[in-house]
């Protein structure tokens, strides 16, 4: 390799390393703000002001879903296995909303310690399989 080419290669690598470290420092500094949702363990025990909007994510606790027969109001418990938070929601749930499945609720904590959701999204995991396989795993 000629000296000129070596120099150009060094400059290129220098640019790459510079851009890489600048980006990683920025991401490291912002890491808490880049979280899309908080788990119940993140929320319980910390002081989140009442009415502050954030997203709560976790699994819908099986057997905890209560639907009001006369309206769209529904309540369920979101859990991460350690802490639970009760979520109240008035609206249409996504099709993939199931007990035991992942869910993300966008809303705020109430004075009662319960979570008032304005929007509920379903989160599915990275596993894909036919129903027969699923049944045999149970």
């Amino acid at each position: 390799m000629t000296p000129t080419r070596k120099r150009r290669l060094k400059i290129a690598l220098f640019i790459l390393i510079g851009a890489g470290s600048a980006t990683s420092l920025m991401l490291y500094a912002l890491s808490d703000n880049l979280l899309y949702f908080q788990s119940p363990s993140d929320v319980v025990g910390t002081v989140i002001p009442e009415g502050k909007r954030f997203r709560l994510g976790g699994l819908v606790q099986p057997g905890s879903v209560h639907r009001d027969p006369d309206s769209l109001t529904v309540s369920f418990v979101v859990t991460d296995g350690q802490q639970d938070i009760t979520v109240n929601f008035n609206g249409i749930l996504p099709d993939l909303f199931r007990e035991g499945q992942g869910v993300i609720a966008n809303g705020s904590l109430q004075a009662s310690g319960q979570f008032a959701a304005r929007e509920v999204l379903a989160k599915h995991d990275e596993n894909y399989m036919p129903p027969e396989v699923r049944d045999s795993l149970k």
Partner: peptide, 25 residues
């Protein structure tokens, strides 16, 4: 060349942070 730094971010975004998008299948 500079934009390459975004590639690991896309790949690891689902591991580094909580996301709506599921993890790697």
């Amino acid at each position: 060349l500079v934009g390459v730094v975004n590639l690991p971010i896309i790949h690891y975004s689902v591991e580094w942070w909580t996301t709506l998008h599921q993890g790697t299948t």
